[in-house]
């Protein structure tokens, strides 16, 4: 105290001019203070880049996706559905082990496994991505309404309890039986059950966030509801949404494998990872033929694990709490 008391006592002795200076209004400085160079996406991206494993897997996944898309147009590619004939016998080139001609060998009717695997990956990834996007759109919309609107709360909660408690298997099987076996059927069957989880997550988060002070302030200022949901709430949910979406892809691929296992998957003439693995399963006991199971399993494993790890690290990176 003693240190400053002298000074304070002497304040009156000094002229006010010595104590305060007039600040000159400076446009440039004003700009600097009002503007922060914090960008949500840039920070997210920055902290994501710190995770080396995830980045390399992301590159791998992008490479796979690109490769799967351009593979049919590369030179020397075979058709995934054409049956190749053995020039000696004139009949199908059955179960040819991997060689120069057929890089991954052929299956039991002489189709080229290399191109079938990429065609199958294309189909499965397509199913996975479409399911993830549809689930996200429906899930977020309904979840946001459910969490934010008090009128819709009760009916949606009841609907949720019903849908959540119908065993997923039943819906999957019934849908596949009632509709024709096709890609659309599989996507529809998975979306019918898939969005519920997403909606619940969004709803729970929104319930937590909606009564925070800043939202209350927003409301009292007359901000419309849709703006509050879009601008105030959703950005907080990005990390959860990203995580769930990236997990939805491998989940959908897995569900496709399961449906194929119980005999309701895509027709064999339509290559998919589920089909390839299911066909290869019987061959597990035969050392010579095991390559037919090995390659699709590896592709499936790589894709699954990549999405898991990328999803998790992206969720960490997207969490604003980790940005400081």
């Amino acid at each position: 105290m003693g240190l400053y008391s002298e000074e304070i006592r002497n304040i009156t002795d000094k002229s006010s001019k010595q104590l305060f200076e007039f600040a000159v209004a400076d446009e440039n400085n004003a700009e600097k203070i009002g503007y922060s160079n914090y960008s949500y996406w840039r920070s997210t991206w920055k902290s994501f880049l710190k995770n080396k494993v995830a980045v390399s897997l992301l590159i791998l996944v992008i490479a796979i996706v690109l490769f799967v898309l351009i593979q049919p147009y590369l030179p020397n590619q075979k058709s995934p559905t054409e049956i190749y004939l053995d020039p000696e016998t004139g009949y199908q080139a059955r179960n040819v082990p991997p060689n120069e001609e057929f890089w991954f060998g052929t299956n039991s009717i002489g189709q080229d496994l290399w191109s079938r695997i990429w065609a199958g990956t294309r189909t499965s990834l397509f199913i996975g991505v479409v399911v993830a996007i549809v689930e996200a759109i429906i899930g977020i919309t309904i979840g946001a309404l459910w969490g934010y609107s008090r009128k819709l709360e009760a009916p949606l909660t009841h609907a949720y309890n019903v849908i959540e408690n119908i065993p997923t298997t039943i819906v999957l099987i019934l849908m596949s039986l009632i509709l024709r076996p096709s890609i659309t059927t599989i996507i529809v069957a998975m979306c019918i059950t898939g969005w519920v989880e997403m909606a619940r997550f969004i709803r729970n988060q929104i319930v937590i966030l909606r009564d925070r002070e800043y939202n209350l302030a927003s409301r009292t200022l007359g901000t419309p509801s849709y703006r509050i949901i879009l601008k105030n709430l959703l950005p907080y949910l990005i990390s959860i949404i990203m995580l769930r979406m990236s997990l939805a892809v491998p989940y959908a691929i897995g569900a496709e494998v399961f449906l194929t296992y119980i005999g309701l998957g895509l027709p064999v003439s339509e290559p998919s990872l589920g089909n390839l693995i299911n066909e290869g399963r019987v061959l597990m006991m035969s050392p010579d033929l095991r390559y037919q199971l090995l390659f699709p399993s590896i592709v499936l494993s790589v894709i699954t694990i990549s999405f898991y790890i990328i999803g998790n690290s992206f969720a960490d990176a997207a969490d604003p709490k980790n940005h400081v």
Partner: peptide, 21 residues
């Protein structure tokens, strides 16, 4: 087929897929 090889059953159908083997 594996059960048959191990003598646990006396009859087994051999699926076309593993016939080559």
């Amino acid at each position: 087929p594996e059960l048959f090889l191990r003598g646990e059953v006396d009859e087994a159908a051999i699926p076309t897929a593993i016939l080559d083997d």
